[in-house]
Design a protein around this nucleic acid. Structure first.
Ligand SMILES: [Zn+2]
Ligand SMILES: [Zn+2]
Ligand SMILES: [Zn+2]
Ligand SMILES: [Zn+2]
Lengths: 483, 483
DNA sequence: TTAGGTCAGCGTTCACG
DNA sequence: CGTGAACGCTGACCTAA
């Protein structure tokens, strides 16, 4: 008697479960194509991105600003409805907020409405921009190449073929290969104007190279061979460290050239400060240029694991550290997603280096002037290259660089890349005291009278005087090799 | 905006119908899709809410606390700006007031500032809560079904299909149907702990059924047939009375089972008092469970009309009565709006029955103990079922039940439901002396040694001794049927 | 899929008594 | 001081492209 209704109830329960299971299965199967899993750098803090189904059974993506459930990509970043609306209102009415605290208010799901200033600040820091990912049809989702070419100077081997930009992924091919090395025009425009330098031969539709960017590109040096690395995603830590080491040297070589060539504008005493503050960002950009960001990922994950093994810190510290890690990871992901050509990368390095927020800087004005040239040149270049579709391309790049500078901690990168015996000092010394010609381009007919950016004439700059607190750069490090 | 609301309701209703048609037996006979028939219990006192443009051309909604013009829903209830601000201040600063009178101060637009205590009390009584309707945006707003299935015991016919939960309105699907009837685990947890009863088979993510709630659910009895009622909104008073009569019997059957099974805890002499005080609330809950609240609405409106016809009372009396009616109407509306599953409904009946405010009660402690078990079980259940999103779900339900107990007058309900010849006594006698087995569940392997809630062993309880003042329950009413 | 729009509802402000 | 009318901000939901 009661068996009958029990059976009916059981049947109903089972039907319910099977329906739920079917729905779950359907949901799971539709979730298999996680678009984020195609990138080498994931927005979440997964340590092994090449193994997507292992880590998170929950397919929910969280807002990069507040951690709430994201409803999709808005203004370029995964964000929730609230942060989306907030950002929209902020930019539409061009509101400016103020913080009653120290501009360090926590921004999470519970406190996001406490301080508008800090919320908007975090929105910007996380890379939200007016022009979302809607307009840039040239998609940014680029896979890191499994095979990448690493020139011994960190520069690509001549032309777009050397770049890890898969041309089939919707990125317009970059019709630009060292145009700065072409003969300059017979006349150049008046000083202090961010004029353009037409290329020769001048085929139609070719982008222009602002002369203010030329040194940045020239400093990349000539292409000379490359290193292939099969399957970057499965690099051993040792191999990754080897790659990072080479890329770091290339970074420092580039920096030495630029600093040497800008010696007349930025006092040498400041150059060490600039490099000290900028080198991690420069290094990461150089890695990107070499298609080797994955190597850094591997080393960071490895380093984090080791730290976790050896010492249990306080919970609060852990939380803070985890948040920092997430931020770092996000910014690396963002950088990786952003397809850049060589000119843009070089300009970004300039932005990273010439940053008036550098601590201890006294010649802010000079640095700001240098930066202004880079920005102007980059804007001009982007306008010519991208058209009005991505009107804020230069802003985007600047935002990326600023964020990178914030999240990249010098000691963290150094210990991850160089391991226990952190020989950062040695490498710096090695590079900056090397007798090899640092700018092997003297034969190129760069207009020597250009005052827009004084091209190096390879006279040795006066010996630098370094502050005693500077950890790894002894005096004379920035000298060129003509002695 | 009204059209949009109606469309959503209609869509949800259609989804409900299709689900019900798939699950239930043969309810697909006459599916009248008249959208104007979206009957419900509306906050205003309009008797025919399905004809909005006819009755009230003024869409003004008044504050449920003071009757002033409401400016919208605030903290879950239609309220004016004043009551909104007052409530906000009260909860924000967690103020506690005191009443200089007898805690019965009138709270209306003119006197609302006379006594803060009574104003806040009324705010709470009317259902204002910290967590307003922002968090659960699409979860309320449920209309009673056009077609409802009424089992002769008032229980839904096995599974969530029998419940008026539109699955499209953001209500999470409830993967739970009579799990309490499944075999319990081989071992149970220590007594006096509100432990959980895992389900068999135990798929992940299924909510647990607190064992203290099991008897409440079991007492619903088996589903056995159902009554179809086309277009509940247009029931004739006779049909409504027929339905109410059946539901009332089901209520009493449930009560008899529960009281018999709790005989060891609550002295029998008290059981009649509990039932006397609780039956209107239990009845209303049973109506809700059957989706037949509209039937009561119709009878109440009918009864009110008759009274108005036959006698003109004093104006003051009228005012008071109108206020009471409004309160009653509001609480019924609130109950109707609150979507409950079967476990919650059963637990609410437990809350209604075991109420230490029952007048004349001497064994308060025992009743309070029983209530505590129900509350604990309900909280545990809500936590498992709803998660932390609705942390105050159990509080909300308790608030609804308390309010219902206050506004439901036994004689009013009785006369409305049973008409002139109020045969309430007969029905009680009939049910409580019926020879049918009251709990046909002895073969279920409920752990017999459980002291959490003593399961009935179907020994006849000793004959009760009723107080002489008890109006309609003679001695021996609560005995079981083994004689 | 995401940018833009909507608006109920929450928070805050500040004459006013 | 508490009150409450007025206003700005928030974000869940909707629609269009
Ligand atoms: Zn957010
Ligand atoms: Zn702040
Ligand atoms: Zn009010
Ligand atoms: Zn009072």
């Amino acid at each position: 008697m009661q068996a009958e209704w029990l059976q009916r109830i059981l049947a109903a329960q089972l039907a319910q479960w099977s329906a739920a299971a079917a729905a779950a299965a359907a949901a799971a199967s539709s979730e298999d194509q996680d678009p984020a899993a195609t990138a080498g750098v994931l927005p979440t803090s997964s340590t092994r991105p090449q193994q997507p189904p292992e880590e998170e059974p929950v397919p929910v993506i969280e807002c990069v600003v507040c951690g709430d459930k994201a409803s999709g990509k808005h203004y370029g970043q995964f964000s929730c409805e609230g942060c989306k609306s907030f950002f929209k209102r902020s930019i539409r009415r061009s509101l400016s907020y103020s913080c009653r605290g120290t501009k360090t208010c926590p921004v999470d799901i519970h406190h996001r409405n406490q301080c508008q200033f800090c919320r908007l600040k975090k929105c910007l820091k996380m890379g939200m921009r007016k022009e979302g990912s809607r307009t840039s049809r040239g998609r940014a989702n680029l896979l890191p190449p499994f095979f990448f070419h690493l020139t011994h100077n960190g520069a690509a081997n001549g032309g777009p073929a050397g770049f890890p930009l898969p041309p089939g992924l919707g990125v317009p091919p970059f019709p630009f290969s060292f145009p700065g090395l072409l003969p300059p025009p017979p006349s150049h425009i008046s000083p202090h104007s961010s004029s353009s330098l037409p290329l020769l031969p001048p085929p139609a539709h070719l982008p222009l190279l602002p002369i203010s960017l030329a040194p940045l590109l020239l400093a990349e040096g000539p292409p000379s061979g490359h290193v292939e690395c099969a399957d970057a995603a499965h690099l051993s830590p040792d191999a990754a460290m080897e790659i990072c080491s080479r890329v770091l040297r290339a970074t420092l070589v580039w920096s030495r050239r630029i600093l040497a060539s800008s010696g007349q504008e930025a006092p040498q005493i400041e150059q060490a400060l600039l490099l000290h503050a900028a080198w991690p960002t420069l290094f990461v950009l150089q890695l990107k240029q070499a298609g080797a960001l994955t190597a850094l990922q591997i080393l960071l994950a490895d380093s984090g694991k080791k730290k976790l093994d050896e010492a249990l810190e306080i919970n609060e510290r852990d939380d803070e550290k985890a948040e920092e890690d997430k931020l770092l990871h996000h910014q690396l992901y963002r950088l990786n997603e952003c397809a850049m050509d060589m000119m843009e990368t070089a300009a970004c390095k300039g932005l990273a280096l010439f940053h008036s927020d550098t601590p201890g800087l006294t010649a802010r004005e000079a640095v700001e002037r240098m930066r202004e040239r880079v920005v102007t040149g980059l804007e001009e270049y982007c306008r010519a290259r991208r058209g009005d579709d991505e009107i804020d391309r230069a802003d985007t790049l600047q935002s990326i660089i600023s964020s990178l500078r914030t999240v990249l901690k010098s000691d963290e990168i150094a210990s991850a890349v160089l391991g226990e015996a952190c020989k950062l000092n040695e490498i710096f010394l090695d590079v900056f005291s090397a007798p090899t010609p640092l700018l092997p381009l003297p034969s190129f007919p760069i207009p020597p009278t250009s005052s827009i950016w004084p091209m190096p004439t390879f006279r040795p700059p006066p010996p630098s005087i370094f502050p005693s607190s500077f950890p790894f750069l002894p005096q004379g490090l920035l000298r060129t090799t003509s002695d």
